[in-house]
Computed example of a mutant assay.
Amino acid sequence: AAHLERVEVVIEPETPAGCEALEKILIGEDVSERLDVTPAKFRVIVTRRPKYAYKGWDGVFQAAAPARIIESGIPTEALLAQIAVSKYADGLPLYRQEAIYARDQVEIDRSQMAQWMGKVGFELEPLADYALTRIKQGERVFADETTLPTLAPGSGKAKTAYLWTYLRDDRPFGGSGPPIVAYRFEDSRAGECVARHLDGYRGILQVDGYAAYNRLARSDRGNDGVLLAACWSHVRRKFYELHAAGSSVIASQTVAQMAPLWAAEAAVRGQDPAVRIAARQEKSAAVVAALFALWEKELPKLSGKSKPAEAIRYALGRRAALECFLADGRIEIDSNTVERAIRPQTITRKN
């Protein structure tokens, strides 16, 4: 890792007996590198604000106290950042952090840290709003949602809430903007939530097959104009589960025929949209057409309640949204990008 600091340690050999008076000439050296780490270390910041009085002047003079996120509290902003990143980015729950800090004889109660995180969340709200605003300025936005257990006030019991995730990443089609992700906590999974979050957005929305997102594409809604693009990975998973179980010939055939789609995508990732469209028309369009022809042919032969029939109906019902990527180079073949962004939160959910 070239970006890391290098600390050089030179180990000189002992002078051989009888060579003390001779001139020493460097003819070479052996160099090796090892990765080192400096463990996190607690310290106490002592802030002194002297008070002064001037002869011949009334009053006391003192510098103003610096602003703090936790007024009259002990944590510095660095400690708050450490706790927040450990919990929300690294999936390290507060009770484990409590035990880790105790090893350094620093006692921080988990309930105290929870209160701190609530205050940090409040202070970061403007940044979260700005992130979502920037995301909505993109040409294409990914969206997904996941469950998030939360305590019901006054009951002492957990209820199911939802974490909605919105992500912008223009790099796959050659864009230069930085990737941005924003999260929104809601008690509901209803379409009203995503309509409110993406109010005013008019671009491409790439999602899984959840019906709530359909609301944004309807002409009678305030978000009229959103183009929904579907996820081929979700389609593949339904067939792959049957293929892995060895329970469906049509599923195995589907999985095999789908493979060239991702191979074609890998070759043009990061390219200009026009290049991506040309490659998809050359390599992927025929594969997609053959898949839909296969499903339409085989569906009447299957029991309506069978798993293969369910998988086929899932794909056929989203055909227009699945075929979008063939005509628009900004669209990805799947929504795996946002799933990767939501995965750290699912780890935290288990903790």
Rank of each mutant, 00 (worst) to 15 (best):
Y314V: 04
D224F: 12
K297L: 10
R218G: 02
T47Q: 13
K238E: 04
V338Y: 06
V60R: 07
V7M: 08
Y166K: 05
I69G: 01
Y95W: 14
G191R: 10
W57N: 12
P75E: 08
N336G: 04
T146C: 13
I333Y: 03
P66F: 03
G73P: 00
T133Y: 08
K87R: 09
R34C: 14
S219H: 11
A99V: 06
M113D: 00
P172S: 11
S32Y: 15
Q281N: 11
V44G: 05
I135C: 06
G225C: 02
Y101R: 09
R140F: 04
M113F: 03
L261T: 01
T15E: 04
P149C: 11
L94I: 06
A289L: 14
G209E: 04
A65Q: 06
L322H: 00
P308G: 07
A230L: 00
F173V: 00
K87P: 01
P149L: 07
C324E: 06
V37L: 11
R48I: 07
L302Y: 09
R318N: 00
D334F: 07
R189H: 14
F185V: 09
I70N: 06
V85Q: 09
A321K: 07
V287L: 13
L316S: 01
P149K: 13
E139G: 11
G246P: 05
V235I: 06
G246L: 12
G56V: 10
G154M: 05
A251M: 07
N351H: 14
E107I: 07
V60T: 12
R168L: 14
E20W: 03
D334S: 14
L326F: 11
K51S: 12
A285K: 15
T160K: 15
T38L: 15
Y130K: 13
M258H: 03
A267K: 15
L228H: 09
E192K: 11
Q345C: 05
R276S: 07
C193W: 02
P93A: 02
A230Q: 02
S176L: 11
G138C: 04
A131C: 11
L148T: 01
N336T: 02
Q62R: 14
K51M: 13
V207D: 07
A327W: 07
S303Q: 15
R218S: 06
G56Q: 11
A78I: 01
I69F: 02
S32R: 15
A161E: 09
